[in-house]
Amino acid sequence: MALPAVAFFGIFALIPLIGVVVISFMEWNVLGSPEWVGLTNWEAVLFDRPFTWTALGLTVTFVIGSYLFQAPVALLLGVFMAGQQRYRALLAVLYFLPLLFSSVAVGLTFQSLFSPNYGLSAALPFEWLPNDWLANSDLVMWVMIFVVGWCFVPFHGLLYQAGVRQIPQSMYEAATIDGAGRLRQFFSITLPQLRYTIITSSTLMLVGSLTYFDLIYVLTGGQPADAVRILPLDMYVTGFASYNLGYASVIAVILVAIGLTLSLLLNVLSGSSKMDSDKAGA
């Protein structure tokens, strides 16, 4: 019964996961066959290639920046959408729209909006508005964080909305009787009750942006300036543009390692906090 699932999963997901570790010890330039070279790739990528560390730094900036932008907006949006007012329900329908566009569609849209010749800067009469959004190496990282946020905030907003709706109304009623104001209720009821949602959403956000590739590739036209060449993109360019698949596999293994560590860490966190909230609920 389980055979088809096991076969597909084993051949095309599990074996590649092991395969990427194996290829990281091989030299392979796409055309020939891979050849065993031991630790050569690892040494080269970690010690003789300063850009690896630059890319890691950029990845950290991207992941943290994305989180600081997406998490608060998604949380507030979720709380907002969970309200009962009719216009909020209508807004929620519209908030969902970015989820219907593929990352390429979003990338091309913003590429055009940020174009110096016919984008926002040309249309709006503000002199101070920069017109080289995507070419300016100081700006481009923030533009990426914004655009990626544009795509993913709606999804996380939905998660929070569902989370808020599960909070028992009686808690708010009791707090109101005790004279707690809105702000107090938000920090003493809503936030603690959302703990589990916060962990789930945070895991998806952090691991998601760690391995994020599509939009950044499209927005930079596939020729990323080094200012946004985060690890997943660095892996792709090294592997499929420079045809050094051994190096690229090393980068991929580093990504998997960071990603798994991060998920495990957050999982441990969620395990303990879930127990706490279970107790609080009882």
Binding site: A2, A5, V6, F9, I11, F12, A13, L14, I15, P16, L17, I18, G19, V20, V22, I23, P34, V207, L210, T211, F213, P232, M235, Y236, G239, L245, A248, S249, A252, V253, L255, V256, G259, L260, S263
Partner: peptide, 27 residues
């Protein structure tokens, strides 16, 4: 066996597609 299988499959949720693309390409 059934339990083990479930655990292994659950592990799969954490595998990032991007990181396995090179072996998938080879395969």
């Amino acid at each position: 066996g059934g339990k083990r299988l479930f655990q292994i499959i659950l592990l799969g949720i954490a595998i990032p597609v991007q990181a396995t693309i090179i072996p998938v390409y080879y395969l």
